[in-house]
Write a protein that binds this DNA or RNA. Structure first.
Lengths: 378, 378
DNA sequence: CCCCAGAGTGAATCGACTA
DNA sequence: ATAGTCGATTCACTCTGGG
């Protein structure tokens, strides 16, 4: 079944169309399969496509938290594919239609994780898209790895690509630089996940398992579209793309198959007000406070494994190991833990307590940390 | 031409071998094409492969094409496809050989940028590797985007994959946590690029265009190998992998086609000194430590039968029995089972949940277990 | 009103060993 | 092969309720 729903001030009655659409259904959620829906849109009509396709997670059994709770995993039907091959053909199908409806200078953004992003990236190169950047969304508050079996999966990857190699795409260089304290915007973005009041809820529980934060879309749309541009999201979900597009004065079209998501998205976008111009100017990003783990000093060679640490009065001595833990007699642990043990104190700031001998003088670890911060520029 | 160069203390004369190698040529740079060289290594013999394959697809058309079949480019699209296709077949060829020589529990690391990493990632999934993490190397000092047309390309991507889904791979969880101030190591790593004195030079200009920093390899090898493991690098370049492997007490094999890089690598590794053993020690993963049954603490008198266990907040009390089972009201069983029952939780780590009163303070069972490990000298 | 403790939660490919 | 048992594991942030 196909239905269109227009939201916002200028609401039109929904109507079903199976023939190609004459004009663009701006500000509309098309409830249909994304390939079928895109097939009915005119070619070369869209400025940007933002796509958050299913990730093909292939999860095993339940995962429990250390304290006993069960992780609420993504186990929806829409994320199930039999094989890589079937995921690939699904991917190629939507990428092909997406490319047809993009304007010659249009761009595509896709977001994914290691489960799917390599397949998506290879497929879009094969289809003729031209990759401009891959962008890493670093989550400031990711879910930990409860079993201690891997690195904490703390990021997702976005690919920004133009329709073809010779596209003259939009990139608001100055706006990005202004957002980043007059430094060029880098390819790694630190942003919190979507939670709190921003997270759409139905009957108290999350409306969609993978809702993206508005801050992410905010940066994408501000960087790569102009006011009035048409942004299409073929996996609309709860409509983050539409909400941010409306807020930033961009036109939008959403495609979403599931009724329950369409409902949420419609209500949400209706409640979103466009920014007035002055407000738009004052939005600035905070720079994250850098944290230096002691291990960084070892990796970069500022301290050698085997080096001896001592306190300011040279009363205690500890030895640095390859993994940045330190040992003092039987005691081993972090610089803070061992420092505390040395003084039989409940806690200790290892950065200021411990020193290393350099050029016949004692240098506090904290001093080396400052040097590291200067080196890395954070 | 094929030549082997062994570096370090036990230097052997270089010799050409075309038949499969009987033993592993440890500490050796094999000067040859990487697929041919790997083909002569015995299967299931390598613990880890670290690969930094060429990125540049522009050169690809000719470089990666299999024997013969040089086809003239007719149009751009076709040429592009041809370039990707030949890069893909090159990629599949080396991934296949790499997988053959990996031990069943071996792992692969590959590093790349958006130009090639999506193709490599998809190919390795197709070949049967199982992705464990994708890791983002965030460069603290990347090259700026001079033209202001894109985001500053400030990262590269690494893929960590096991040989197959059921591999029981090495991950030194505790060492990584220790390196990161007792927080789980995340999938985004901030490290400076290779510059200054670390950068290999020939006649004053850089010896290799894409030399990787030692800090990157340091973390990779510390995290995913054990001392004595065999690490192979099929695109050895100036030998960063070999240098760090030697420093960390891992065995290594390099494969490199270009004479000029082999020379630099050899001199560099010869000049690298291994860390002494005590400095190399890392926090052993609890999982890797010998298992201490709770009963051992009773047998050695560290806990008396009849002793009372309580949680950190003294809300629950359980009693230790002579056979190391515990009872709490009607409930009885292991420290884990009773701990779970106490909290009505599906599971519980009894070692960290239960405490005993010692010298007017609560001591976690886990602490007693550590003491036991030291006592028994394990 | 504020403050603090405690509970809840997020795209997750999240054991090992023995019978 | 498979089932059962034993064992080991979490970070940042938000919200709620009690004082």
């Amino acid at each position: 079944m196909t239905a269109m729903v227009r939201v916002g001030a200028n609401t039109r009655p929904a109507k079903a169309k199976l023939a190609p659409l004459a004009g663009l259904p701006l500000g509309t959620i098309i409830q249909d399969d994304c390939v079928a829906a895109m097939a009915r849109l005119p070619e070369a009509s869209i400025d940007m496509i933002f796509a958050d396709p299913p990730y093909n997670l292939q999860l095993g059994g339940d995962l429990f938290r250390p304290e006993g709770g069960r992780v609420d995993a993504v186990d929806d039907d829409w994320d199930k594919f039999d094989t890589f091959a079937s995921y690939d053909s699904f991917t190629r199908a939507w990428l092909k239609e997406a490319r047809r409806i993009l304007k010659p200078n249009g761009t595509l953004w896709v977001i994914g994780s290691y489960h799917n992003i390599f397949r998506v990236g290879a497929a879009l190169q094969d289809e003729g898209y031209w990759i401009l950047n891959d962008i890493v969304w670093r989550k400031s508050n990711p879910m930990p790895n409860f079993r201690g079996t891997r690195f904490t999966n703390a990021h997702e990857t976005m690919i920004w690509a133009s329709r073809s190699e010779d596209s003259r795409y939009t990139f608001n260089y100055r706006a990005m630089k202004a957002m980043n304290d007059e430094l060029q915007m880098r390819s790694d973005w630190l942003l919190p996940i979507c939670s709190g009041s921003e997270r759409a809820k139905v009957d108290g529980s999350k409306a969609h398992p993978t809702q993206k934060p508005e801050s992410l879309l905010y940066r994408v749309l501000l960087a790569c579209t102009n006011p009035g541009d048409v942004v299409l999201d073929p996996f609309f979900g709860t409509g983050t793309t539409g909400a941010v597009a409306r807020r930033l004065g961009r036109e939008w079209i959403g495609i979403e198959r599931e009724t329950r998501y369409v409902k949420v998205a419609r209500g949400r976008i209706d409640a979103t007000l466009p920014l007035d111009e002055s407000a738009m100017k004052t939005m600035a990003s905070k720079r994250a406070q850098p944290r230096v783990p002691f291990g960084a000093l070892i990796e970069t060679g500022m301290i050698e494994p085997g080096a001896v640490l001592t306190d300011a009065k040279r009363r205690y001595r500890a030895r640095v190991r390859a993994d940045a833990s330190v040992e003092m007699g039987e005691k081993q642990g972090s610089i803070h833990q061992v420092g505390a043990a040395a003084q039989s104190a409940p806690s200790c700031n290892g950065w200021t307590f411990w020193h290393v001998e350099q050029a016949e003088a004692l240098v506090a670890l904290d001093e080396l940390r400052q040097k590291y911060l200067l080196l890395t520029g954070e």
